[in-house]
Computed example of a mutant assay.
Amino acid sequence: MRTTSFRRALVPGVAALALAVSGCAAGNDTSSASGSEGGESSLSGELAIGGASSQEAAQNAWIVGFQEANPDVTVTYDPVGSGGGRESFINGTYPTAGTDAYLTDDEGELSAATERCGGTAPIEIPNYVSPIAIVFNVDGVDELDLSPEAIAGIFAGEITQWDDPAIAETNPDADLPSEPINPVHRGDESGTTENFTTYLDAVAPDVWDAGVVETWPTEYGGEAGQGTSGVISAVTNGTNAIGYADASQAGDLAVANVGVGDEFVGPTPEAAAAILSASPRVEGREPQSFVFELDYTTAEAGTYPIVLVSYMMACQSYDGDGQGELAKAYLEYVLSPEGQEQGATEAGSAPLADDLEAEVTELVEGIQVG
């Protein structure tokens, strides 16, 4: 069985600026942060946030939608990276921030964030799910079904010809050329590489023995592309090439369907979002921490397993400086059906499943603001 894939061009975002804002602390006011009465927004001010660069395009889309509904509010998102987002949230620069890695105490970040939020563990919610597509440009081939082992073999340099039995077996109707494979990888330190190799390490550790890495192991060879655009360019302009990249930037390139159980699934937003339903939440966390141990080896039908999941962090209560009210209202918009559709349409992010969206929305609606 095959679930078809998708192609989507990325819409460029607006530039982001960094502004200093004050921190949050425990508060007792339970007033609503919706900021609207009779359809007119009562919110005003500036909200400066930032963090994971993976969210930049989606954040820019959300900012446009939120500011249309709240014309007296200015929101900026600075893509300083996940580490910078966590640091700026902890030190009070951002009232909410994005990160590709949830808070842990490996380096004391979770405890520090709890202290920053007045002694109560912060809220952590998934807001951005992006499929990582296997893009390809192979003479005479428009569709490609690849098993996890074949993907690992290609990128580990063990499968070197397009008509290799490991590829031909799952593509009996394809006219595979008897030509060398040109695998393309990121040449820079990359969160996309980290998520892609996390998948390879989980599904084919006997083939992919480099473990989880952010920098591509040179011994595996292949062509390096600088950034996502470099990978897309190298595959587009290459001969019989294949690479990995955020699906929203695949453009006109063909994308492979990936073996999941008894079917092959393409990187649609819905299939990518399904990974959260198929994965358990991380054990030992507070109830307001919606972070997941992704099940890359799932056999759940209709689930695309090569994904990047990014989170937003916020306090459960804020003081009366106004930043908490703006942060709460902004997060409510991001999680709303309108916000999720905006992110999907403009940035190719995968909307959250209805049940998960309802749970995290209720959590955000419970944020107390002074």
Rank of each mutant, 00 (worst) to 15 (best):
T218F: 06
T215N: 06
T298A: 09
A210R: 05
D201C: 01
N237S: 15
T303Q: 04
A166R: 15
T170G: 09
V258N: 03
L308F: 00
A241Q: 07
W216P: 08
V203D: 03
V213G: 00
D206R: 01
P305S: 10
E223M: 10
P183K: 02
N240K: 06
G243N: 11
L276W: 08
P165M: 09
V282D: 13
A247D: 07
S190I: 05
P267R: 09
D188E: 14
G187F: 11
T170F: 11
L176I: 13
A274P: 01
N171H: 12
E219V: 10
A247H: 08
T239M: 00
L200Y: 07
L253A: 03
V203Q: 07
V212S: 07
R281Y: 02
P177K: 12
A274W: 04
N240C: 08
Q249D: 14
P183C: 09
E219S: 14
N195Y: 14
F290T: 00
P183Y: 05
E263I: 01
W216G: 05
G227H: 07
V203H: 06
T170Q: 11
S178C: 03
V282K: 14
N182C: 02
Q249P: 00
V255P: 00
S233G: 09
T297H: 00
T198Q: 14
A278K: 08
S178T: 13
V265N: 10
D262H: 02
P177M: 11
V212N: 06
Q226M: 14
A254K: 12
A274F: 04
A168P: 02
A299Y: 01
A202D: 14
T228Q: 14
R285D: 10
S229E: 13
T192V: 13
T215Q: 11
T228M: 00
G251I: 07
D209L: 00
F196M: 13
D206G: 08
A254M: 01
W216I: 06
